[in-house]
Design a protein around this nucleic acid. Sequence first.
DNA 1: AGCACGCCGACT
DNA 2: GTCGGCGTGCTC
Length: 745
Amino acid sequence: MFVGVHPLAGFDKLLHYRVPESLRAHMQVGSLVRVPVVNRLHLGIVGEIGPPRDFPLERLKNVAQLVHPFPALTGDLLGLARWMAAYYACGIDTIIEAMLPAAVRNGAGLKQEKLLALARPLGIDELETLNRRAPQQAKLYAFLAQQFKPQKKSLVLARLGITAATAAALVKRGVIREEIRRIERVAYADDWSTGELVATQPPALNPEQRAATDALAASLHAARFGVTLLHGVTGSGKTEVYLHAVHEALAAGGGVIFLVPEVALTPQTVARLRGRLEAIAPGHRAVVWHSHLSEGERLDGWLALATGETRVVVGARSAVFAPVQNLRLIVVDEEHEPAYKQDETPRYHGRDVAVMRAKLADALCLLGSATPSLESFANAEAGKYALLQLTQRIDDRRLPDIDIVDMRIEVMSSRGLTTLSRRLVNAMQARFERREQTILFINRRGYSSSMLCTECGHVEECEHCSIAMTYHRADERLRCHLCGAERPAPARCPKCGSPKIRWRGLGTQRVEEAVRRVLPRARIERMDTDTMSRKNRFREVLAQFRAGKIDILVGTQMIGKGLDFPNVTLVGLIDADISMHIPDFRANERTFQLLVQVAGRAGRGDRAGEVVVQTFTPQAESIQFSRHADFAGFAASELKMRRDFRYPPYRHLIHHLFRGPNPEKLQFFAEQWARLVERELGNRVELRGPSPSPIEKIKDEYRYQLWYFTAAVTKVVADLARLRAGFPWPEDIVQVMDVDPVSLM
DNA sequence: AGCACGCCGACT
DNA sequence: GTCGGCGTGCTC
């Protein structure tokens, strides 16, 4: 008997081994084994059963040990690992490592990391010779000499672009020293298992909820892959719908994964969820899974699931890898949350991975949100995902009125005062007189500003990529952050010729001043990163606001969190469209989400609140969204961390990008990379040739360099005016390519 | 990742 | 000639 094993030894290759008689009984795909690699034992996962295709059988070594009698990875998980390795362009070993808790990977083997530190300082002449004879070592020495603490080896090597051999040479000479530190997890009392299990009576469902649960029950009954998007406004009782689906899946003998964003994993939430679960599906105890568990707790939970003793897991994004048997349902609550994105290797998106896992396990994936992400919404629109809507609030609170104010008209009619519209000022005065509160939200998702004409609303775009170009004040030029194109900033609007063209972005101070002018007696407080330097200031201001000691709160994104002030009946959104021109669709998306959150909370129980949205582009025809920017960003940040990107085609491209000014080779690998991206992402890639900038500059700006090769852009059209009609995501989604993980298999 | 191998420039 | 630095390729 032969097996192909993915060793967890730091490289991405399937190695074959002979299985001794004694280990054959329980050996299967997904088994955790210990195998010899070179002269050391490593853990590995059996990836296939059978002999190697191009390796002589007589040279095969034996499997040393079978760690568990049951498979550590279920079949769908192994398939998922393969898919992730291709989709996120990383080694399968890193993914398998992420799938197994540290304690499982080795009984006592705690994770270790290597650190580098200076051992003895070098004398002047020694340094001199080093500089001359071994520039790489000198670079490393210079770096370490500046550090106070030992630094992580892998990071240092990646940053400086040097190999382990360089470090080894210095270690051998005793100039630097290598330390090994065990990374131990902080043990942490699980107050969730002891938290009071309030076995609340399941509340009666309203007709909408009933319809949704019926539809889900039907889908679950079919026992086929499917994705359902549950779009329910804030307070419409999504959780109750989830729980009925969970019950249905459990009753059918299936397993369930319930994902929540990390922030939502508070003891209270989990206790409540558990309580409800107990009430609705008696006898089922859920495993709780998150990053703060101790090794032992993780192991317990993992074993309970892997052996089939428990069939439900509630947890943060990594719970998507839980070894749940006979998986029937994956719930992704608040699916739009950016917390589902992992920003360390292996980089992945928990929601997309959930969809894919459901596909591989023939299970149902239920995505829920009050503000679905654009990609999920688009997939629902396209009919790939089923859509269920909950439009009524359980508490029957009315949705606020939304006014869109066209600031172009304001600018024309009232010259001078253009920060606040008449509409907003009147509304604010009314609140002040009634002793109600106002929030002014300044949409200033900074860093990049675009060129906007205040006369006609025209925004300068890149001719290749069709995204708004970024204005760089220093040299008065416009740049495209996607393809790197640039040109001088125009003095007049290219469309209507007006000189009133300016870069956007109002400061909080300016808004505050404007408010003071119209409401001199009101108590106003400003809240942004500048004024909130002191740590407690933030809470202080919020407390004062809640206590009614502040009439008007002016702030940026910061006020979006924890926004539940009962006396706020007016929310003003200044420069609502500014982020529409940022060449990053996530920024646009976040603005929508925030707006919906803010708006959903304006108003007092009895009376609907009011939301005033100020914009220069009320009929924004086209907002651009780019999947490529997202992926390239992903890849770029990956590359930042590791010099030798392991996925072979990338590895070579990157190597030549970083190492040699060799245009032919560079082009060859760029083409290879482009083809890879085309294949993996299904998008067209336009190759524009090597960057004109000198190679030294590329090192600093390789992000743009990478983007330079991937200028295919996906277009989505959204209409801000749609906000009038409830809380929708843009309905006019024309085309969203490649946002459905399953289509990219 | 860790290790062996081999090329290449530098210098007792 | 030899030695050390450093890139390259392999691990069943």
